[in-house]
Amino acid sequence: MAVIEIKQVAKSFGSFTALHSVDLTIADQEFMVLLGASGCGKTTLLRIIAGLETPTTGEVWIGGRRVDHLPPRERGIAMVFQNYAVFPHLTVFENIAFGLRMKKVPQAEVDRRVKRTAELMHIEQLLKRYSGQLSGGQRQRVAVARALAMEPDVILMDEPLSNLDALLRLEMRAELKGVLAESKTTTIYVTHDQVEAMSLADRISVMNGGRIVQAANPVEVYRNPAARFVGSFIGNPPMNFLTAQPAGAGKWQVAGQVFDGPAAAAAEFAIRPEDLHPSESGLPAEVRVVEPLGPHTLVTASVAGQPFRAVLESTLTPRPGDMIHLAPVPDRIRWFDPATQSAL
């Protein structure tokens, strides 16, 4: 049982605040992905959970035990570092075995676990090498194997697959998910890659500027962004936003069209590019760029002078300069408060 509770954790480096009062609970055996732009505080949060950094304020609990004053080794965690930290003076075998050696695990068990995790990460042929003789991606896999070999209750992974080629990454992603689910490990996984986040996560925590903006399951995060940032960060291409003028009685006028919306003083209209289809009654859009991508066509246009993207059937091929009309799927329209940026 390893529930991780982060209670009002804040972290400042001098006058710079890297984390603003983060609250997050990760359930036992949950796969939590931290997603956010570079510099938003993902590594800092992970390092606080690991005990490599002390929070300025707040508490960290693991498995019902308050751990924020315990050294890392007493927290029952394993970690994959963003910069790998694979020991240069040890062979790949001894690197993977490092944590087991510290716990004085019998040799036969060490052999078994090293072999198993090395096979899983496809590095079994590298066991006798030193880290200086490995490529970046191989080193990264050693770092992952070293953490997996511990069979910990909690595993913290900081962009563990960032340096692998697309194909290997896809394969490793699936294997990781299988292994961690099987071993009932609670996982916190940091990534920049939305697809990876979507595919792995039980829940995604989207971070922005040292805050967690939304923590929910991948579909929820995608469909119902809790904040404008989430919509603009997740999705490729991201959500479209258009200004809206109140038209009374919960109606809003967007680019000449009237939509039902929330009862609020001000609102911003939002729609995902794939939730649009051509229709005479749609939003008038002036086509700028057309990119045929195979399964569909990505159209970049301008609606009432604001940038707007639509993902259309590949049979539709408008030309730059054309005026088209794009109708949003009614139940996919989202509204945001322009002042607080949160969903309405």
């Binding site: 005990g51 890392p72 080794r73 394993a78 570092f81 930290a85 020991f87 490092f98 944590g99 510290m102």
Partner: peptide, 10 residues
Amino acid sequence: EYGEAADVFG
């Protein structure tokens, strides 16, 4: 980072 890795790995 090597000292930190050693700390984390017990």
